[in-house]
């Protein structure tokens, strides 16, 4: 299989020259297309920073990142925005729906940003898949947390991304909704053949992925392929 994401000796520091805080230190791994990967670690281990770098939301201080064959560090912010729009889907812990748009409009936005037409039925299909077809005209404030996250998942798949980044997707939800979101996330991912990278400190969610990369103090402390274990079991 092809490598969809290649993280090569990436470091990230913040602060001034005198007071540098190294958040990530020499991170190095590849992810193959179609894989499901969990990035785990305690708070402050650098998980979210790593996700931000992999998704082109920020630039590494050192090292390089290639996403779908595109070297991200050579791109400016607007070029990276285009890469995100065409290749990446996002699911956030706090849903991050646009508050002034309805559920349907939220799902349509990534496609509209690509300049695509006749997208309404596709967006409705996605809303149906997450069970919210009847809530298409509702605004985020009129939806529960679980429903908002389902709209967020529909939006993440709307632009048919090659890779989907999820930052603590069940972090703000109760057990029942968490279960539902996890199932939707993995089912839709399987159906679309998308690569899934989940940042979490929920071991149960991590265990559902094929590979677990563990971070501590900004370094990779383990990189386990759990799919072979699952297969061998």
């Amino acid at each position: 299989m092809d490598t969809i994401l290649s993280v090569s000796h990436v470091s990230k520091s913040y602060g001034t020259a005198d007071h540098r805080l190294k958040v990530l230190d020499d991170i190095h791994f590849d992810i193959l297309a179609g894989d499901t990967v969990a990035i785990i670690g305690p708070s402050g281990s650098g998980k979210t920073t790593l996700l931000g770098l992999c998704a082109g939301l920020d630039r590494p201080t050192e090292g390089s990142i290639r996403l779908n064959g595109i070297s991200l560090e050579s791109l400016d912010e607007d070029q990276r925005a285009r890469v995100r729009n065409q290749h990446i889907g996002f699911v956030f812990q706090n849903f991050q729906l646009l508050p002034t748009l309805t559920a349907l409009e939220n799902v349509m936005v990534p496609m509209e940003l690509q300049g695509l037409k006749n997208i309404r039925s596709h967006a409705m299909d996605l809303l149906s898949k997450v069970g919210l077809a009847n809530r298409q005209d509702h605004y985020p404030v009129q939806l529960s947390g679980g429903e908002q996250q389902r709209v967020s998942i529909a939006r993440a798949f709307s632009n048919q991304p090659r890779i989907l980044f999820a930052d603590e997707p069940t972090g703000n939800l109760d057990a029942e909704n968490s279960e539902l979101i996890e199932r939707l996330l993995f089912d839709l991912n399987r159906e679309a053949g998308t690569t899934l990278v989940v940042v979490t400190h929920n071991p149960e969610l991590a265990a559902k992925t094929g590979r677990i990369i563990a971070l501590k103090g900004g370094k990779v402390i383990s990189d386990l392929n759990t799919s072979s274990e699952k297969t061998s079991n």
Binding site: A81, R84, N85, Q86, Q96, V109, P110, L113
Partner: peptide, 11 residues
């Protein structure tokens, strides 16, 4: 969010 979803700074 818009920037994350792919809107450029100009847009």
């Amino acid at each position: 969010i818009l920037r994350c979803l792919g809107a450029t700074s100009q847009q």
